[in-house]
């Protein structure tokens, strides 16, 4: 089992829920991204999702769109993101998931990507616009490299499709907690409870819920239903707010501590 599976295993023993944290690589700069990830890990984040910025992020709301633009302006590329992972891995054993749209990976070369990502110490890969129907062209390589290919389940996913996605899930099942793009609406607890219940009946793979979770209270509520919660836009907004300030790391650390406390 890899770092992701181990982490969920350990948390289960401690009766804690995982805090999965998304940030956009290269926002505001590559150097700060590394420091930010180490700060997140220190403050209690259990898994980090490093977003590869893309020019046309159609699954993202305004906050992550703006972060992607800032990161691209700062010259961030997928090769650069892989370098960031290498540097983080020298100092931390936090599980790392690369979160991307498919085109940057396709341009990099699917096989080379899988090998390089594994080699620098990434643990999982999540591609928002690569549904199971199109996934094999990447997954043959990421499976071979030993990266967890993380599958998404949406509120609109049902029936046989849900069964098939869950069956082939690795690492954890990512349940999208709103019918919408990132950071735009508040999750509705009842729907989430129902959907996560369905997933649980189909698999023992851990389930993390994310999209639209914006504070510790929501995280706590959803944490009672899932094995983990994912936060993204809240943190990215905070990074934007403090990116010119000495208080950046402190603000990020406080935010993570508060949310993690709700998951213990």
């Amino acid at each position: 089992m890899g770092r992701i599976g181990n982490k969920f295993g350990k948390l289960r023993v401690k009766k804690e829920k995982a805090l999965v944290v998304y940030l956009t690589a290269g926002d505001p700069s590559p150097a700060l991204t590394i420091e930010l990830i180490l700060t997140l890990a220190e403050a209690g984040a259990d898994i980090v999702e490093i977003g590869v910025p893309f020019s046309d992020p159609t699954a993202d709301g305004p906050v992550i769109q703006a972060a992607s633009q800032r990161a691209l302006k700062a010259g961030t590329t997928l090769s650069g993101v892989i370098e960031m992972v290498r540097k983080v891995r020298r100092e931390s054993q936090i599980p790392i998931v690369l979160f991307s749209y498919f085109n940057p990976i396709f341009a990099y070369g699917v096989k080379r990507f899988a090998e390089d990502a594994k080699q620098v110490g990434a643990d999982g890969i999540l591609v928002v616009d690569l549904p199971p129907e199109e996934a094999p062209e990447l997954r043959v390589h990421t499976d071979a490299a030993g990266l967890d290919f993380i599958s998404l389940v949406a509120p609109t996913t049902g029936g046989r499709r849900l069964r098939e996605i869950v069956k082939s899930a690795a690492g954890f099942v990512y349940y999208i907690s709103i019918t919408g793009v990132t950071g735009t609406a508040a999750p509705e607890i009842e729907n989430i409870a129902g959907d996560i219940g369905k997933i649980r009946r189909l698999t023992k793979t851990p389930v993390a819920a994310g999209f639209g979770i914006s504070d510790a209270a929501q995280a706590g509520q959803i944490g009672r239903l899932a094995d983990g919660v994912v936060i993204g836009s809240v943190l990215v907004r905070l990074i934007d707010e403090y990116r010119h300030s000495d208080g950046l790391m402190r603000a990020v650390s406080d935010c993570i501590r508060e949310i993690k406390a709700a998951l213990r």
Partner: peptide, 22 residues
């Protein structure tokens, strides 16, 4: 059947949209 024109085409969409596309 899956919308491929040779190596082109396909259905590279977010999971939320997949059921609607099907």
């Amino acid at each position: 059947k899956r919308g491929h024109f040779g190596v082109f085409g396909g259905r590279y969409a977010a999971e939320t949209l997949m059921p609607a596309l099907l």
